[in-house]
Design a protein around this nucleic acid. Structure first.
Length: 500
RNA sequence: GUCCCCAUAGUCUAGAGGUUAGGACGCGGCCCUUUCAAGGCUGAGACUCGAGUUCAAUUCUCGAUGGGGGCACCA
């Protein structure tokens, strides 16, 4: 390890999917490491056996990979300070506990969870403030304690917090100088009765052993920090720099949760947001480059990110802005990348994977007509389905009524006139010549362009709203276009299917 | 209850002891236009409140209010 090199970590607990708040924490850690030439470490905090699963670990790792984050040490890549899963580091916590035992800085506590819960409840009901553990077991005679341990009585190990400890102070890289009164710190549990370390204990051990220099994490840990500092002090370890990040809230200013809709990276991926969008959006939710920049590349982020421009204010997750941003990225991604990324949704629209692979060029021609009217990839089936109908047309009843059956619209005439032009094989099957030839009908027929083209649009695309008409026609085979027109004419004007 | 944090338009944010308080999303209007978009122009919209410091406070201090988080053998 190089002296003074920044070492940061993202330490998720695998109890669920990767939440966007966690994702932002990961991005900030990653960007900070990249901006400072430091190391970014991924550590899995799986000490809670009831909620942690290997499957969740994989989900989180996959989500981080999808976002395009890479770590220098951690699962899948290894590193000099492994293992990078807490359940595999039990011996290190045990060693730390032994050290504290030897120095008399911890004591065994035989109070059961039930007793503690009862005391807490009683205090609350009596209207008194609960001030933490009452230190009942702190004064048990050591010999007596040992006898009870030897007898197999369940016990936890608590930190013997120095009585009348001075206020605990530290400088947070985001919040500035922090000061917590020492007397509110109770003797927190370091090791549970099953021998496993608690979060606060494991984090301190790991961050020290992994030589973490900056702990960048959620604001919900701010109040834990003084407790952890107590542990650092007891262990005689150097205290890292802390940087706490504000929370991400839902539109109702409550902690972002399922009832607000999508909350996990995975869900946003499935809705058709690009990784670049997510990184950009999350990066700027609580950090700014200059107040002007709204679109920022990974490269720039990795170059310019700094902790001193992180805001302290909680941020509301605004999916409308995310939609806009994703649209911007779609417009910039280019045809080839678009086709590759759009594959699953194109298949939903009616394409087949084989066809996409074999006729990639054709699919790339869709991009120019759709890229500026797409914000999410999951809009593809609805917006591009008509390209995959073959000779059939799925007529939208409302569009038929508004455009084809509108009184005095002369839609039947318009359709037939356009059909004649489109059937003329002397006209090249290209957007411009076809469009020009159809447009030439306007004057002799005394029809405004809209009156001529909208009926055709419905007949070909099935809907009065669609991507550009003649660009679409060019993408379709002539026989299919004519078949659709014929079908529309028959159903609407001959069979009167939509009259009722 | 207690400890801690936060406070610029609906949202994300920039900002300085004296600014016409800047940008972006969204919203309104106009232009463009065969639909929808995109694009261009344009409009409305903010410093939570109350004291104090100061020639001057939205910016500094204190208080109030509002919002958030912690106080577990969860992380």
């Amino acid at each position: 390890m190089t002296d003074n090199q920044v070492r940061v970590r993202f330490a998720p607990s695998p109890t669920g999917k990767l939440h966007v708040g966690g994702a932002r924490t990961a991005i900030y850690n990653w960007a900070y490491a990249r901006a400072t030439g430091g190391k970014f470490i991924l550590r899995i905090e799986d000490t809670d056996p009831t909620r942690s699963t290997e499957e969740n670990t994989q989900i989180i790792v996959r989500a981080l990979r999808w976002l395009g984050l890479d770590w220098d040490e951690g699962p899948e890549v290894g590193g000099p300070y492994g293992p990078y899963k807490q359940t595999e580091r039990m011996d290190t916590y045990k060693a730390a506990l032994e050290k504290l035992k030897a120095e008399g800085k911890v004591y065994p506590c035989f109070c059961t969870k039930e007793e503690l819960d009862a005391k807490r409840k009683a205090a609350e009901e009596a209207g008194k403030k609960y001030t933490g553990y009452d230190r009942t077991c702190r004064n048990i005679d050591p010999a007596e304690a040992q006898r009870r341990i030897d007898a197999g009585e369940p016990h936890v190990w608590r930190l013997k917090v120095p009585l009348d400890h001075a206020p605990i102070e530290f400088d947070d890289a985001v919040y500035g100088h922090m000061k917590f009164p020492g007397e509110v710190m109770d003797d927190l549990i370091l090791v549970r009765s099953d021998g496993s370390p608690t979060y606060n204990f494991a984090v301190v051990c790991d961050d020290t052993n992994m030589h973490i220099t900056h702990v960048i994490r959620g604001d919900d840990h701010l109040s834990n920090t003084p407790r952890q500092i107590l542990i650092y002090e007891a262990l005689g370890y150097p205290v890292p720099t802390f940087a706490h990040l504000s929370m991400i809230l839902g539109p109702d200013k409550k902690k972002l949760s399922k009832r607000h809709g999508a909350t996990s990276v995975e869900e946003f991926r499935d809705q058709g947001y690009l990784p670049d969008t997510m990184v950009n959006f999350l990066a700027l939710l609580g950090w700014s480059l200059d107040g002007e920049t709204t679109l920022i590349s990974r490269e720039q982020l990795c170059k310019e990110f700094s902790l001193d421009r992180v805001t302290k204010k909680d941020a509301i997750f605004d999916q409308t802005k995310l939609d806009w941003m994703n649209g911007e990225y779609i417009q910039r991604m280019g045809a080839a990348a678009w086709v590759d990324y759009a594959k699953p949704w194109l298949v939903q629209a009616g394409a087949t994977e084989n066809d996409i692979d074999e006729r990639h060029d054709w699919y790339e021609k869709i991009y120019p007509i759709i890229c500026e009217r797409l914000q999410r990839f999951d809009e593809i089936p609805a917006k591009l389905g008509y390209l995959f109908w073959g000779p059939e047309v799925h007529l939208d009843p409302a569009s038929v009524k508004k455009v084809l059956l509108k009184a005095n619209a002369r839609a039947d005439e318009a359709i037939q006139a356009c059909r004649k032009v489109l059937a003329d094989e002397s006209i090249e099957w290209k957007c411009d010549p076809l469009q020009d030839a159809c447009r030439a009908l306007c004057e002799p027929m005394d029809l405004k362009p809209g009156k001529l083209f909208q009926p055709l649009r419905v007949a070909v695309c099935g809907n009065r709203v669609s991507p550009p008409l003649f660009e679409s026609i060019e993408l379709l085979p002539r026989k299919d276009v004519l078949a659709r027109i014929d079908e529309t004419y028959r159903r609407v004007f001959t069979d009167h299917e939509f009259d009722a």
